[in-house]
Lab assay of single mutants.
Amino acid sequence: LADDRTLLMAGVSHDLRTPLTRIRLATEMMSEQDGYLAESINKDIEECNAIIEQFIDYLR
């Protein structure tokens, strides 16, 4: 059971955070005209990261 939990934490961490990191990188490359959009996307990314952290904390 502990091994399954560790594997799940690693999978969640990698499989969800990697795309979020790519999205954040894309927002950094957006033009200044789209700053409001990038800010909104980054806020959503932070919310997703917080949910992931809560899930990982729960698994521990």
Rank of each mutant, 00 (worst) to 15 (best):
V12A: 11
T6C: 08
Q54L: 12
S40R: 02
L59K: 08
A2L: 11
I56Y: 04
S31R: 08
I56M: 15
D15A: 02
V12E: 10
A10Y: 02
L1G: 13
L59C: 00
R5D: 04
S31W: 00
E39P: 14
E46T: 12
G11Y: 02
L20F: 01
M9V: 15
L20Y: 01
I51Q: 11
A50R: 14
R17L: 04
S40E: 11
I56N: 06
S31V: 05
D3N: 05
I52C: 09
N49W: 15
T6G: 06
D34R: 15
M29H: 08
M29C: 04
Y58T: 00
G11H: 09
Q33R: 06
I52W: 05
N49C: 14
E39Q: 06
K43A: 01
A38H: 04
L25K: 09
Q33G: 06
I52S: 08
L7N: 12
A10R: 00
H14I: 02
T18P: 10
L8I: 04
I45R: 05
R17W: 08
E32Y: 06
D34Y: 07
N49A: 02
S40T: 04
R22C: 00
I23G: 00
L59W: 04
A38W: 11
T21A: 08
A2C: 13
R5F: 09
L37E: 15
A38L: 08
L16Y: 03
T21K: 14
A38D: 13
C48Q: 05
R22W: 07
T6Q: 03
K43V: 12
A2H: 15
L1D: 14
E47F: 11
P19F: 11
D4W: 09
G35T: 06
L16Q: 01
I23C: 01
E47Y: 00
I23P: 03
I45D: 14
D57A: 08
E53T: 00
L37P: 14
E32Q: 06
T18C: 09
K43N: 03
L8Q: 00
I52F: 08
G11P: 12
E32K: 06
D34N: 13
S40M: 14
L25P: 07
K43L: 03
L37W: 00
D3V: 06
Q33W: 00
D4V: 12
I56C: 03
G35C: 06
L8N: 14
L7P: 08
K43T: 11
D57V: 05
L37G: 11
A26F: 11
I51N: 03
T18Q: 08
L16R: 10
G11W: 11
I23L: 02
E53R: 09
M29K: 04
L1K: 00
Q54D: 00
G11F: 15
L7D: 00
G35N: 07
A38Y: 06
S40A: 09
A26T: 04
D57R: 11
P19Y: 00
F55C: 06
G35W: 00
N49K: 06
M30L: 05
N42E: 05
T21R: 10
E46R: 12
I51Y: 07
D44H: 10
H14Y: 02
T6K: 00
D44A: 03
A50F: 07
K43Y: 05
E32N: 07
E53L: 11
M9A: 14
A50Q: 11
M29F: 09
L25V: 13
A38K: 13
I23D: 00
L25Y: 09
G35P: 07
S40H: 10
I56V: 04
I45S: 10
E32H: 07
M30W: 02
R5I: 09
I41R: 03
I23H: 02
D44Y: 13
T6R: 02
M29Q: 09
I23Q: 01
Q33A: 07
E39A: 13
K43I: 03
R17K: 00
L1T: 13
L7W: 05
L20A: 07
E28G: 12
S31N: 06
P19N: 00
E28R: 14
A10C: 02
A2W: 15
R17M: 09
D4G: 09
K43E: 00
C48F: 02
N49Q: 04
R5H: 07
S31Q: 06
M9C: 12
D57Y: 13
A38G: 08
Y36V: 12
A26D: 09
E46C: 00
E28V: 13
D44N: 13
L25H: 05
D15P: 00
D4E: 08
S31A: 07
Y36I: 07
S13R: 11
R60A: 02
C48M: 02
I45M: 02
N42D: 10
L59E: 09
K43P: 12
A50C: 10
D34T: 13
D44W: 00
Y58A: 15
L25A: 15
L8A: 05
C48P: 14
Y36S: 03
E47G: 07
E32S: 07
Y58K: 09
Y36Q: 10
L37V: 03
L37I: 14
N49Y: 05
A2T: 14
L20M: 03
E47S: 15
E39R: 09
R17N: 02
L1V: 12
L16F: 02
E32L: 06
M9Y: 02
E53K: 12
D57C: 00
I45K: 08
D57E: 07
D44F: 05
E28M: 04
E53A: 09
D3L: 11
I51A: 15
E46I: 07
Y36R: 06
A2R: 08
G35Q: 06
L25S: 09
D3S: 04
S13K: 08
Y58N: 12
R24E: 14
M30P: 09
G11Q: 00
D3C: 07
Y58V: 10
L59M: 12
S31F: 06
Q33K: 06
F55S: 04
N42Y: 02
A10D: 03
R24P: 11
N42G: 13
N42W: 05
E28P: 13
S13C: 11
M30G: 05
S40W: 00
M9T: 14
T18D: 11
E46A: 14
S40G: 11
I45H: 03
D3G: 05
Y36N: 14
A26Q: 13
R22S: 05
E47P: 02
E46W: 09
E28C: 09
Q54P: 13
A10H: 00
R5N: 09
Y58G: 04
G35H: 09
D34F: 14
A38P: 08
C48S: 11
M29V: 08
D15Q: 01
I51V: 12
N42I: 13
D4K: 11
E47V: 04
L37H: 05
N42L: 12
N49L: 15
I41G: 01
L20D: 03
A10V: 00
C48L: 05
A10F: 05
F55E: 03
S40C: 15
E47Q: 04
D57H: 07
D3I: 10
I41S: 13
V12N: 02
I51C: 00
E47M: 03
M30Q: 09
H14K: 01
M29A: 00
P19D: 02
I45Y: 08
Q33C: 07
R5W: 08
I51P: 04
I41D: 15
H14F: 00
V12I: 00
D34M: 12
T18W: 07
E32I: 07
R22D: 02
T21W: 11
F55K: 00
Y58C: 00
I45P: 09
E28T: 04
I52L: 06
E53N: 13
F55N: 05
I45T: 06
H14M: 00
A26G: 06
K43S: 04
H14V: 00
A50I: 04
I23T: 14
Y36A: 03
L8K: 04
E32W: 02
F55I: 10
A2P: 12
M29W: 03
E39V: 10
R17Q: 12
E47L: 10
A50G: 07
G11T: 13
L25R: 10
M29S: 04
T6E: 00
R17F: 10
P19W: 10
D15S: 01
I23K: 05
A2D: 06
E32C: 06
R17A: 08
V12P: 01
L7A: 06
V12Q: 02
D44K: 04
C48H: 05
V12T: 08
F55W: 13
D3E: 05
E53M: 12
T18V: 12
I52D: 09
N49M: 14
L1S: 11
F55H: 11
R5L: 09
L59F: 13
M30K: 15
A10S: 00
